[in-house]
């Protein structure tokens, strides 16, 4: 499986990443290498192996429905690039 420059452009857009022409070429090279590396896995014979939904052999990690303290609002808003007394502030959300 290979990857085109257009694929990388699309993934970059979905991930909200911006590249110049040079960066896009470099990123395409890198990603093609990564894909090829992972492709090595398909050389393995997995005929008799059950597909896994998860890497760990653990199930049913469930917690009781008992409240624990939340962060203070000050702490919650501490890392926000922009905020007011109560809320995070972000560029206008349209279409609501």
């Amino acid at each position: 499986m290979s990857l085109t420059r257009q694929d990388v452009e699309k993934v970059a857009l979905l991930a909200r990443l911006k590249f110049n022409e040079d960066g896009l070429d470099k990123m395409t090279d890198h990603m093609v290498q990564i894909i090829q590396y992972v492709d090595k896995l398909s050389e393995l014979d997995t005929e008799d192996v059950q597909p896994m939904a998860h890497a760990l052999d653990i199930y049913n990690a469930l917690a009781e429905d008992e409240p624990r303290p939340s962060l203070s609002r000050e702490d919650a808003l501490k890392n926000a690039p922009k905020r007011d007394e109560e809320c995070f502030r972000v560029p206008a959300v349209l279409g609501e």
Binding site: A76, K82, D84, E86, C87, F88, R89, V90, P91, A92, V93, E96
Partner: peptide, 17 residues
């Protein structure tokens, strides 16, 4: 929840998590 802040002009939306 996002709330558009009319008072602050076209500027920002306020986010309550």
């Amino acid at each position: 929840k996002s709330m558009h802040d009319e008072a602050a002009g076209k500027g920002d939306s306020r986010i309550d998590l």
